[in-house]
Simulated scan of single mutants.
Amino acid sequence: MQGEHAIAYASRSLTETEKRYAQIEKEMLSIVFSATKFHRYIYGKEVKVYNDHKPLEQLFKKSLLSAPMRIRKMMIRLQWYDITVIYRKGKEMQVSDTLSRAFLQTENQHSEFDRQEDMINMLSVSIDKYAEIKSPTQTELSALHKVIIDGWPDTRSETPVEVRPYWDSRDQLSVLDGIIYKGLRLVIPPSLRGNMLELIHKSHLGMSKCKQRAREVMYWPCMNSDIDSMVINCTQCNEYQKQQPAEPLKPTPTPDLPYSFVGCDLFDFESKKYLLVVDYYSKYIDVAPLQFENAKAIIEALKPIFACHGIPVKLRSDNGPQFSSNEFKKFCASIGIESETASSKNSRKEPLGLS
């Protein structure tokens, strides 16, 4: 068409095989037929193709690998042309709809896009497993099969409830030999999903490898979350899974003078409480028994130690209530000590690794 005026048209009927194509495949076939027929008109030019099947517009925006097998072959045929597919409502396409009524009967009853044996050989599925999937697909996914063949409605709410989980993948779904495909992956019926999960997880490869293995061959809605649940609940996978690496130890720099930087902590020995004070310079240890485990008792125990060795510049302790109390902070401030605390839940950060 030039503007809104038809300068040439062509049409043909579908073969018996093509009549069994999914609606999106029929629409794609019409574009291939038109491009081939008017090759001399459109080759080397930018061409807009209007179509009333909305999923087809989205399909052309995705990569070639995400397309179903038969549609992928058609898209490869269209690589010669610089076409842009634009969705237009059917009621706005009066000219093409009217002219399509006067079609010519097709003499060649063979479709070049219907070589199933080539497509099946591209799958990593045995013949027995292929037949096993085919039987329940016809019974359990019959509603999805019908929607794919007849065409998807314009809105999600118009689709049957059991088909809505497949709405976001509608432009990648197709039917071949009684089996539903998403691209090159087989859509697994519900009754076989448990068995497929066991096969995927049989080697205990871990969450990422199991997902990668599944994505190469099969698909069903929420497949990733099902694999996550199986791996998380597997005791063997949990035992040998990769652990988070431990934080590297950050040693405290050695101070320049003795007893300028000390650390203190509490510990129990034979049901008695003790205060431990360590010099970061000499690693000299002082231990003082405690009658009570409170700030006042700790302050009284520190006074003779500081009187013997001198008052330090900095004192490190954990975030225990005795060391974080106002009474202990006032004591340190009164004699000019800088009080520093570290997490009590991480002994690697505490003074000399004490806990």
Score class of each variant (00 low, 15 high):
6 A>V: 15
12 R>Y: 03
18 E>Q: 12
18 E>Y: 03
23 Q>F: 05
24 I>H: 11
24 I>D: 06
26 K>A: 10
35 A>S: 12
37 K>G: 02
39 H>E: 14
42 I>H: 01
43 Y>S: 12
44 G>D: 07
50 Y>A: 05
56 L>V: 00
60 F>Q: 05
61 K>M: 11
66 S>F: 03
71 I>W: 00
72 R>Q: 13
78 L>W: 04
78 L>S: 05
79 Q>E: 13
81 Y>N: 10
81 Y>C: 08
84 T>V: 13
87 Y>Q: 08
89 K>D: 11
91 K>D: 12
91 K>M: 09
93 M>Y: 01
96 S>L: 10
98 T>C: 02
99 L>H: 03
100 S>T: 10
100 S>R: 09
102 A>F: 13
104 L>N: 14
104 L>K: 14
105 Q>R: 14
107 E>R: 10
111 S>Q: 12
111 S>V: 12
112 E>H: 08
112 E>L: 09
112 E>N: 13
112 E>A: 14
113 F>G: 00
115 R>C: 15
115 R>W: 09
119 M>Y: 13
119 M>H: 11
121 N>A: 08
123 L>I: 03
125 V>S: 01
128 D>V: 13
130 Y>V: 03
131 A>L: 13
135 S>N: 10
136 P>S: 01
139 T>D: 13
140 E>T: 01
140 E>I: 06
143 A>C: 09
144 L>F: 01
148 I>N: 00
149 I>S: 05
152 W>I: 02
156 R>W: 07
159 T>R: 06
161 V>N: 12
162 E>I: 09
164 R>H: 01
165 P>V: 04
171 D>Q: 14
172 Q>A: 08
173 L>E: 04
179 I>A: 01
179 I>G: 04
181 Y>I: 02
182 K>Q: 11
182 K>P: 02
185 R>L: 02
187 V>I: 05
187 V>E: 00
189 P>L: 02
189 P>W: 00
190 P>D: 15
191 S>N: 07
192 L>Y: 00
192 L>H: 00
197 L>E: 07
198 E>L: 15
198 E>N: 14
199 L>C: 08
200 I>E: 03
202 K>M: 09
203 S>V: 09
204 H>N: 11
206 G>A: 05
210 C>T: 15
211 K>Q: 13
211 K>A: 08
215 R>V: 09
216 E>G: 03
219 Y>P: 03
222 C>T: 14
223 M>S: 00
225 S>Q: 11
227 I>R: 03
238 N>D: 11
241 Q>L: 07
244 Q>P: 08
246 A>G: 07
256 D>N: 11
256 D>W: 05
257 L>G: 04
258 P>H: 09
262 V>S: 15
264 C>A: 13
264 C>D: 02
265 D>Q: 02
274 Y>P: 00
275 L>G: 00
276 L>I: 14
280 Y>H: 15
281 Y>K: 11
282 S>D: 07
283 K>Y: 06
283 K>M: 13
284 Y>R: 07
286 D>L: 04
288 A>E: 11
294 N>F: 03
295 A>H: 04
299 I>C: 08
305 I>K: 04
306 F>I: 02
307 A>W: 08
313 V>W: 10
314 K>Q: 15
322 Q>G: 01
324 S>I: 10
327 E>Y: 08
327 E>D: 06
327 E>N: 03
330 K>T: 13
330 K>G: 10
331 F>Q: 02
337 I>V: 14
337 I>Y: 07
338 E>T: 12
338 E>F: 05
341 T>W: 02
344 S>N: 08
344 S>H: 06
345 K>M: 10
346 N>E: 06
348 R>G: 04
